[in-house]
């Protein structure tokens, strides 16, 4: 979400943060996690795991909001998200034209 000005209560807003973990060797490369991550945190690797599948890489570690969708949708139990320290947003990322508008 983005605003036309920095909200006055920006110091009270907390953005949840998730620590993503990928069990590379369990992945079968379906791409569900990459496709449905609402924050586009993941990107399928060009590398192969031992089974010969492309697995997801974390493109933007800090951007994960711990929604757990990747964990839920993964058919292989190969990715999960642990709750991290929430953070306060930078003013730059919430106003229009900020870096994270698409989210």
């Amino acid at each position: 979400m983005s605003y036309w000005r920095v909200p006055l209560d920006i110091q009270e807003i907390e953005i949840p943060h998730g620590d993503l973990h990928i069990i590379v060797e369990r992945c079968k490369g379906c791409g569900f996690c990459e496709e449905y991550c609402p924050k586009d945190v993941l990107e399928m690797s060009t590398d192969f795991n031992r089974k010969g599948y492309h697995y997801p890489n974390i493109l933007k570690q800090g951007a994960c909001v711990n929604c757990n969708l990747c964990e839920m949708i993964c058919p292989e139990f190969a990715i999960f998200c642990l709750e991290g320290e929430p953070r306060h947003p930078d003013p730059g990322e919430v106003i229009q034209g900020g870096e994270n508008r698409e989210g």
Binding site: K28, C30, F32, M72, C74, P75, F77
Partner: peptide, 11 residues
């Protein structure tokens, strides 16, 4: 198989 949804349903 890869991209089968049964694993997701198990979750």
């Amino acid at each position: 198989c890869s991209t089968c949804g049964i694993g997701t349903i198990i979750t």
